[in-house]
Write a protein that binds this DNA or RNA. Structure first.
Lengths: 337, 337
DNA sequence: TAAGTATATGAAAACGTTTGCGTAAGATTT
DNA sequence: AAATCTTACGCAAACGTTTTCATATACTTA
């Protein structure tokens, strides 16, 4: 358990500990022979630099904070996996925190990470109100938001074009003959969901069909919420031929409720989601949905953050990636009279 | 961006910075009036202690390293969520790394975390060989393994009783009338999977039925692997009436392959998994499986680790939790002649 | 009132690095 | 051979805390 430090190595090698440091960091101002000798001794003694001490003097931790609403959400865990791997390749480690969809907690963990002196923070915010709440804090450390569109705000973010994606989805259902499409899961506390609903409204207007929206009053879009919304909806007779969900998780909840009611998908009802989480692809689910390019989102976010860490003065940047339709088996064409 | 330090506060408050530190840490040897005054000034100036500097002197980071094979695996992401939340309540943050099922990478990230001076490490190892490879490293920092049974090794771990669980699963299928049960996904590089297979063998012996095992030569148990194994198996005529999988993810892959072949579950084939990941519960999947108590695993692991951090001298401890059968709709009773 | 005891505060060391600056020795130039 | 330049290394400061030890002040007590 006795940890070997620079001083220990220096004593053995018979040089000052500055020399050791230089040998290891590949500094040019050191003799080739001593470098080799020192490195050998370091290996023999099992010396590993103390990252904490290094951070102290270098004023840089090489740690990136990641705040997600909930890591056990397939969309976020996929993204986290991408982020962690790429970050490590760039020499950074990830400190991960759940905000648990709680704005107060989100603020708290943000402060925690600031106190930890992380070099930057990537966050998937609880909702659009997060920005105001964190205004003073994001000034203290480079921050990049993922998912939440902040086009009008002086913030860095990367997201998918939610409006275009949902509009495309609506048009796809229309092209299959659907005229009575229920939009399920609109939320007000999230710009993402506002924009997605916009896409639906835009399409309705363009296609001259009547919008029909079932709102989600909860703060999150989970399987459970989708189940409950759909269950309540299915209690009454309904005339929609398709349901378009604000998120795949919601759609999976709808499948559950439909299953219990004996409503077959896609025979009796067409269903679409948004996000393209891994499990949507499984044949028993086989959800037609809109893909969010998770790897590209992760890479863009990290690149953006790293860039900001290097040059904090650069103006805020915004990246919007294109979503794409993923056609599977949860929708069917119907005759439109 | 100018960060305010103890010295800055001290200057404003007109006291030494030792006093500030004491006021904030709740030390008793300080006047009540100065404490209040100092705290007020700290708040006004927006002072937050530098955790790196604190770690330096306290020789403790309050960071726990978590190494998982892959964070985007529902079992691990659920566990990670539990761990992060509980750890934070205990005053720790989580540094998360993927080993990507690669023993070499696993070793590398372990060293990385040691260099970061994390207070302890929780890891879900790639396989049983991880122990040997990391022997020297686990001596450097308190480590707790999750999932992998190391009953014979001088290590700390918490796991579920894999053998009992799989035996129970086999007996359940037997009780439904199944006599020809394929065990799919046995692996050699993981003690967990060895023990699960043992459970199957034990039950076969006890019930006097012929064991029938399809091995998994890959290093991981993913949906993809399950799909491929089952697909190959379904190419030939087969006589099994049930398939028992070493993991839920494998079973989901089997569902996919069965679906493509027009094999209905449970009508044509009964199917069981192990782990009880969230998605197994969804009606279209509705997998009968064996539950691993993820919250309890997480809590036990962290308690064990925290205990070891406090008292590194304590002997290694091992906790084995009980799995439980979760009966859903992927199995049916058949007449046994 | 003198001596002793609490109590509140300050000074300074320590944690393990990186790095700017100084310098001795060796190499190069004239 | 003297002067200059390079090279290789050591010294010591700095990073921002916590904490031990010393000390000054105020408060008891005889």
């Amino acid at each position: 358990m006795a940890v070997v430090t620079l001083k220990d190595v220096a004593k053995v090698a018979g040089v000052s500990y500055a020399t050791i440091s230089r040998a290891l960091s590949g500094s040019p101002e050191i003799g080739e022979s001593t470098r080799k000798r020192v490195i050998k001794i370091c290996e023999e003694m099992g010396y590993t630099p103390n990252a904490v001490a290094r951070s102290m003097v270098m004023k840089r931790t090489n740690i990136i904070g990641l705040i997600v609403t909930s890591i056990d959400n397939p969309f976020m865990s996929e993204m986290t996996a991408h982020l962690e791997i790429y970050a490590r390749q760039c020499g950074y480690n990830l400190m991960v925190c759940n905000s648990s969809y709680d704005p107060a907690l989100e603020k708290e963990v943000f402060s925690l990470l600031v106190g930890r002196k992380v070099d930057g923070i990537i966050m998937i915010p609880v909702g659009s109100e997060s920005y105001d709440a964190l205004k003073t804090q994001t000034a203290q450390v480079p921050t990049v938001f993922i998912g939440e569109n902040m086009m009008d705000l002086p913030e860095n973010f990367v997201s998918v074009d939610n409006t275009a994606g949902m509009q495309q989805a609506t048009e796809y259902l229309y092209s299959l003959g659907h005229r009575n499409i229920l939009y399920l899961g609109a939320r007000d506390n999230s710009m993402t969901h506002k924009l997605r609903a916009d896409g639906y409204y835009n399409a309705c207007k363009k296609l001259r069909i009547e919008p029909n929206v079932l709102r989600n009053s909860s703060a999150r879009s989970s399987v459970q919420v989708g189940y409950e919304l759909a269950k309540a909806h299915f209690e009454q007779p309904f005339s929609e031929t398709a349901i378009l969900c604000a998120a795949d998780t919601l759609a999976i909840g709808v499948i559950q409720a439909a299953y219990e009611k004996g409503i077959r998908i896609p025979e009796d009802l067409s269903l679409m989601g948004f996000d393209n989480i891994t499990f949507s692809a499984l044949p028993p689910i086989s959800l037609t949905t809109v893909n969010q390019p998770k790897l590209e989102l992760a890479v863009s976010a990290l690149d953006m953050l790293l860039n900001r860490i290097k040059r904090p003065e650069t103006p805020h940047t915004k990246t919007i990636l294109s979503p794409s339709l993923v056609i599977r088996n949860s929708c069917r064409a119907i005759g439109n009279n």
